[in-house]
Design a protein around this nucleic acid. Structure first.
Length: 224
DNA sequence: GCGACAG
DNA sequence: ATCTTGTCGC
């Protein structure tokens, strides 16, 4: 895959915030993604804070049967502190390296974290969308900004996440009776399409298959 | 001011 | 994120 090198890399937290405020103007919500979706790229990162080690995984799946087409993992060293709202700067360097190994141009990219459901409307999934030019979706295990009511217990149930008077994402029940995931658009996709896509990619477990595989791969890589 | 805070 | 296997229950 072609992945743009982030032109400017922040040297301070304040610069990182400024960069987000600048880049967020380039985010496009909406548009049509491939229908049907044929290939999906899942991304995840695992850390070991004690050793400052980090592993980023990129896994390409066939969307109809979840067959693994490609999988790569890159290990490195943490280069940015964990600051809520800025963790794209922590995860992006190894993720870009991993994505560059991918041959397939996926129809959509699923990121482990938020998209526009973010303090500055520019979460990891938005940033990944800009550097790849591909449709991206953020899927987080915990809510970050805004408020929501608990969706119904059945799989497929969803409720809006409201922040500053707008809907920034959805709490989505991907598995009956299990805590919802928090879905928001990253780039080049419509919020409701993002929700549908995540449900399609989560037939059995809470976490969508692409991210689940990337999580396992990065975890294995760091434990060896 | 206080608490909360994606991974 | 991480410390952590098997086990109980729908």
């Amino acid at each position: 895959m072609n992945v743009d090198e982030p032109q400017t890399w922040p040297a301070s937290l304040a610069e990182a915030v400024d960069l987000q405020l600048s880049l967020r103007r380039l985010v496009k919500l909406g548009g049509r993604i491939a229908d049907p979706v044929r290939t999906v790229l899942g991304l995840d990162v695992t850390y070991d804070d004690s050793s400052s080690r980090i592993a980023a995984a990129a896994v390409v799946l066939k969307a109809d049967d979840f067959t693994i087409l490609e999988e790569y993992v890159v290990t490195g060293t943490v280069s940015f502190p964990y600051v809520p709202g800025l963790f794209a700067f922590r995860e992006l360097p190894p993720l870009i390296e991993a994505m560059r190994k991918v041959s397939t141009i996926p129809d959509v990219v699923i990121c482990d974290g938020h998209g526009v459901a973010h303090v500055r409307r520019f979460g990891l999934a938005c940033h990944v969308g800009l550097v790849t030019g591909l449709p991206t979706i953020g899927v987080a295990k915990n809510n970050f900004v805004g408020v929501f009511s608990d969706p119904g217990p059945e799989r497929g149930s969803r409720t809006p996440i409201r922040h500053d008077g707008e809907v920034v994402g959805y709490a989505v029940r991907t598995r009956a009776e299990v805590k919802p995931v928090f879905v928001s658009a990253g780039h080049l996709i419509e919020p409701t399409t993002a929700v549908m896509t995540v449900l399609d990619l989560s037939p059995r477990y809470r976490i969508p298959e692409p991210v689940r595989h990337a999580d396992q791969l990065s975890r294995r890589a760091l434990r060896s």
